[in-house]
Design a binder for these strands. Sequence first.
DNA 1: TATGAATGAGTCTTCATTCAT
DNA 2: CATGAATGAAGACTCATTCAT
Lengths: 211, 211, 211, 211
Amino acid sequence: MQIQKEDIRKIILKAARKEFIENGFKDASMRSIAKNAGVGLSNIYNYFRNKDEIFREVLSGLLHAIDSAMKEHNNPDYISIDIFSSEEYMRRQIDMFVELIENHKEDFNLLLFKASGSSLENFRNEIIDTHTETGIEYIALMKQKYPEINSRVSNFFIHIMSSWWISIVAELVMHDLSHNELEEFIREYMEFGTAGWKKVMRVENYFFEQI
Amino acid sequence: MQIQKEDIRKIILKAARKEFIENGFKDASMRSIAKNAGVGLSNIYNYFRNKDEIFREVLSGLLHAIDSAMKEHNNPDYISIDIFSSEEYMRRQIDMFVELIENHKEDFNLLLFKASGSSLENFRNEIIDTHTETGIEYIALMKQKYPEINSRVSNFFIHIMSSWWISIVAELVMHDLSHNELEEFIREYMEFGTAGWKKVMRVENYFFEQI
Amino acid sequence: MQIQKEDIRKIILKAARKEFIENGFKDASMRSIAKNAGVGLSNIYNYFRNKDEIFREVLSGLLHAIDSAMKEHNNPDYISIDIFSSEEYMRRQIDMFVELIENHKEDFNLLLFKASGSSLENFRNEIIDTHTETGIEYIALMKQKYPEINSRVSNFFIHIMSSWWISIVAELVMHDLSHNELEEFIREYMEFGTAGWKKVMRVENYFFEQI
Amino acid sequence: MQIQKEDIRKIILKAARKEFIENGFKDASMRSIAKNAGVGLSNIYNYFRNKDEIFREVLSGLLHAIDSAMKEHNNPDYISIDIFSSEEYMRRQIDMFVELIENHKEDFNLLLFKASGSSLENFRNEIIDTHTETGIEYIALMKQKYPEINSRVSNFFIHIMSSWWISIVAELVMHDLSHNELEEFIREYMEFGTAGWKKVMRVENYFFEQI
DNA sequence: TATGAATGAGTCTTCATTCAT
DNA sequence: CATGAATGAAGACTCATTCAT
């Protein structure tokens, strides 16, 4: 019983995901979802309060994963990391993101490109802002630890770098890269990014994490 | 006569622009446009084929401007430019973009954030692709001219750099930067970008344009 | 057991009263009632046959009180009352009504203004009709006792007077009168009414009750 | 053309009136109206903004008539009227109301009993309030002219008298009185009312209009 | 007794576009 | 060139009640 009902929940969510992917949140039709789920339209409202709640439920997995990743990323321990192993650290960060993306490709698509009209339509900007604040704090902490660095990086620049991250996520979600292509890109990206940061932060002897 | 009619055209376009800005393409209402233009709803269809055509017309100025900018950017003469003055060149490129943005802030907003549902909803991706191809060609030409550089930059990396460009445009459109903030950002961005490209392209003695 | 169940009954009724007061019968939602009562929606149907029955139950206290008052009002003994003490009698009648109203303000509101759609939606007219018949009888009896009076008062006039009564109840329910205001009104009303009746019934030496 | 279209407007209004009378505003169905009018549902919205506007339009005749009557009733000239002819004046007032009612019986029904849910659902109270204010002013003016009268009539009493008026209208609307019955009632009502007012205002030599 | 699930018809309103005039 | 009228499908969501368990 409990099980059966949970099944229907899942069936509805599955049908909803399909509909959302095909038409985006705004153009998704409750009628269609009901039809595809083989469920009475009004019955859906016994499981979910409204369209938006279904959308959030569909994306809840991804949202939690992102939340965890952000907390991980934000872990203050990383600042005390041995600076010379930072390339390894950066690589770990990237791998984490790549894994996140590959596990939730479809959902990322939904979240980044098809959420307009839903309560998640500003997610992109919100996460950029969060990420930006994290970045600003991070640089401040770095400055404390290594006073020689140039910490006078403008907030907007950090904002842009955060926005870049999301863009990269978006592009990775949109394009199917082979493993080799992915590796190649990561290498290039790391080269580019570390060189850039070194320059901006006026560090020659140190090697910093990419914000 | 002819003049009067052109006036009405413009009035419609003006009302349409307002409506599109306020509600985005999909939620814009032809009724509203007609009402705000003081024109009979069906009369609009004497001037435009449909909603989409109006949208494109509203954005035609920006679209042409972008087109010109892209052609300019793509001008093969630039490859023959004296390489050591490239920083100046990069600066010119950036200024051009900034000017483009400031002249068309509102329209960029429309195009990048509110085109969903229209035939321009993929503009972002399309221009990224175009820009990417340009970038690929550009690097090939550079390689011809300066065989010492590393031209083995992956297409996807160039794609990402193009995507970055658009993200920056988007962010500049969304945020109102003071002149000082803008200058600061540009300086940082140039530092970061040139350092990155130098590294990626294995050039120590040369200095390259940012794709 | 039995007791527990009665508790639930009461909880449901309490939640229902709240919902009815806030939204009126028609717009009251069984879902809301269930939610506010902390009871499964369908379980309500184990205690009540339908929405209407709940409504009647909610108002049963008032309905009984009205019934009693009407019977009291209709008591034939009152006709044999010493005519010169009738002002006191009228005053007693009024006080009874006022007390009735003050004890059931909320329910009167429900019954008079928010019953539309329920089986009680015609209560106002029904009680007016009942009251009217009582009034007609009353006058006939008076005529028997005091043949000098003019008993040729049209039924519709009596109907109007009954309707007036209900209107006054309705207004008293809608407005919060201070004790003083209430007293003042009653005095004025009695003056007005007794003078009116005296005139209509062609009595100079007698003093009649207000129907 | 113009004519044809106006016809459709009228057809819609006619169908709407029927629907409103049968089901009341809230339970009236736009679908039904469309069907009965032989008109596409959405086409109705080319003629009216929404259900409420249709309702007001249906009642516009009555609303204007009421407005005129109220203005007439409120005419300050009536205060300067020769007091001894006031019975004639009162009669004129009553006749005016009776005529108003007979001309708009159905609409009054709609307005007083079936407007719940519409923007006119508070009409009864609103007109009572207006009428009350008029009454208060009227008494003040009378006091100026005839200082001997008792003008200390409580506002609530006047409110009740206004409410009574509306009740009478309502009852007249609900019941079909023959001409004789009507005449009889009016006579009784005038007797009752004038006697009442005389008493309340402590006037023996004067004769006042019913507020 | 109590529950969650299911029903199926119902709500008003909006939409872009076309047509006849 | 301009208009008002018409279209037909679609939108999300709610309702009181019943059923199986």
